[in-house]
Amino acid sequence: MKPLILSLLLAVLPLFAANAQPVTQPITLVDDLGRTVVLAQPATRIVSDYDVDVTIPLIELGVLPIASHGRLNRDGSPYLRSSKLLTGVDFDTADIAFLGAAEIDLEAVAALKPDLIITEMSRSTPVAKLEQLAPTLVVNSDLGAPHVYRMLAAATGRHTELARLESRYREQIALLKAEIQPEKRTVSVFQPLRGKLNVYHSYRAIGQVLRDAGFRFPAVMNEIPAGESVVISAERLPDLDADVIFDPYRSDRKAGAKAEIAAMEKIVPGFCRYLSACRNGRYILIPREEAISNSYAALSRMVATVQTAFAPRPE
């Protein structure tokens, strides 16, 4: 008899416990490698394996990762690429541990006991190794910021923040569409690369904005598979002409935009003559540190840049 009562008690006990503490639904995610990741509750102690494409989105969603991949300055101090510019957060302004640059310090990750590790497809860190330390989510940033943010919001439960960011961006794109009729305008994005031209199907944040707004592109750009880039001969420069041309320059260098123009001049002296956009003053140099980030902060700045570039000008 006694065992029966005991087992009954044991069976009933969880019901009470459940009543006392509301059960959080476990979160089931399918990541970009097709893996299923199950989290008991929204992740809070997160380790990021990629600064531009994971850490910045997390910060924007209102979750500070406990540790992140980063880069090294010449003086040896670590930084999160583009982050201070877009979010104000960096290793020196927030409590984020630096994990390393090329290879990240897996031992430090283990010691931190994160409840989620987020990595990106192009990172060399083996997913199998990360999985042994904590549940690991793999995102593919080539699928664009909105996709990455949806994935990260689902993992962290930051749906309100996501909704705000998304509606802000929707509004911005709507404004862009209303003001400048993108479907009637052509744009192109490229950068000089040692005697050749580097052209992307869509260059990260600027590419996303231009595609989302519905601009038209030169045939050369549309022939490139989505998410990829090609290096083409300088002879095809006129094929890249458009109403407005964007050239992401190295904004982290002292010489900055001037060096970019000099590089173009070196490939095609007097290149401006051969591009109608340039002759009309619409060859726009944009800072690469902003354009390269797949984040709503960067998208927002890119919308502003595009808007200014197309804004009508009084005679």
């Binding site: 090329a102 290879e103 897996l106 192009s122 990172r123 060399s124 860190t125 083996p126 199998a128 190794k129």
Partner: peptide, 23 residues
């Protein structure tokens, strides 16, 4: 030559030898 710069760096890392994936 047709690889993206990030993949290129990843490949070079592997070509130089890495024990990161040791299991």
């Amino acid at each position: 030559t047709s690889a993206d710069i990030r993949s290129l760096q990843r490949v070079m890392l592997w070509l130089a030898g890495s024990l990161e994936g040791a299991d």
